[in-house]
């Protein structure tokens, strides 16, 4: 298997390392012992562009359900709420990314990780599966972007 898969967002090549899995809400995850580390996928980061503001609305230790709103990001182009990718308990937020969210852009798959949680059943996708999902998501994203810009 190659080290990464590539999805073309227009002329931009979004890269997805194959050492991890991905969720429907465009996060990557990687098991680190008992806890699972999450971050934003290159697809999400490309849509946002430069992330300037990151905020969590729950505290570390909070039990969350999948799709609970847990925080928000603001970037040069967009605002977005962030939602829990799975049921579980959030154990730790990345203090580095919180203090300086530009880490998300600089190293989204590494130092720019978001949080760790004990996730019971993360229905995550393998990279190849995520790429297929992106093909449908990309159409929806373009429609949403065009729709909002037209308003």
């Amino acid at each position: 298997m190659p080290d990464e898969l590539v999805f073309m967002m227009g002329n931009f090549a979004a890269r997805f390392p194959t050492d991890r899995r991905y969720t429907l809400n465009h996060m990557w995850l990687n098991a680190e012992g008992d806890s699972v580390r999450f971050g934003l996928s290159a697809y999400a980061i490309r849509l946002l562009r430069e992330v300037y503001f990151l905020e969590w609305s729950v505290d570390a230790g909070a039990a969350v359900r999948q799709k609970d709103e847990i925080g928000a990001v603001e970037s040069s182009k967009a605002v977005a709420a962030l939602y829990a990718p799975a049921d579980g308990t959030i154990t730790r937020f990345n203090a580095g990314a919180l203090a300086d969210p530009s880490a998300i852009n600089k190293d989204g798959y590494g130092a720019g990780w978001l949080f760790e949680m004990t996730a019971r059943a993360a229905d995550a996708m393998e990279p190849a599966e995520y790429l297929k999902y992106l093909e449908t998501s990309w159409t929806k994203a373009q429609e949403l972007l065009k729709g909002q810009m037209a308003q």
């Binding site: 809400n25 849509l47 967009a78 998501s137 949403l144 909002q148 308003q151």
Partner: peptide
Amino acid sequence: FDARKLDLSELFGAP
């Protein structure tokens, strides 16, 4: 609607 910034929440899983 505030057109200054796009709201991408829907793509990120908003209910």
